[in-house]
């Protein structure tokens, strides 16, 4: 079953910590975003394999935008 990693708020992507195909545990940091001049680590809601990363550093994102998909 696929699970989306969603942006928790409006902001900008600073770093992408995982690659497609990589295994992640629940609570592993997938993406680091910046909001209100602060770094916010966005974690995997569940364990699995990253199917796709949908953002890249520097990209602006909306709240609830899909950042990655975990299978």
């Amino acid at each position: 079953m696929a699970t989306s990693v969603l942006a928790p708020m409006v902001g900008k992507i600073l770093k992408v910590e995982k690659k497609a195909g990589e295994r992640v545990e629940e609570d592993d940091v997938v993406v680091v975003m910046e909001a209100m001049k602060m770094e916010i680590p966005v974690v995997a809601p569940t364990g699995g394999t990253i199917k796709v990363i949908k953002v890249s550093p520097g990209q602006a994102v909306e709240a609830e935008q899909e950042l990655a998909v975990i299978e």
């Binding site: 928790p8 708020m9 609570d27 909001a35 209100m36 602060m38 916010i40 680590p41 966005v42 974690v43 809601p45």
Partner: peptide, 18 residues
């Protein structure tokens, strides 16, 4: 910012900033 940091310390899926 302090609240965001503290909240995420106890629950990594917690985003309290806004």
């Amino acid at each position: 910012r302090v609240v965001q940091v503290e909240g995420q310390k106890y629950n990594k899926k917690n985003y309290l900033l806004m």
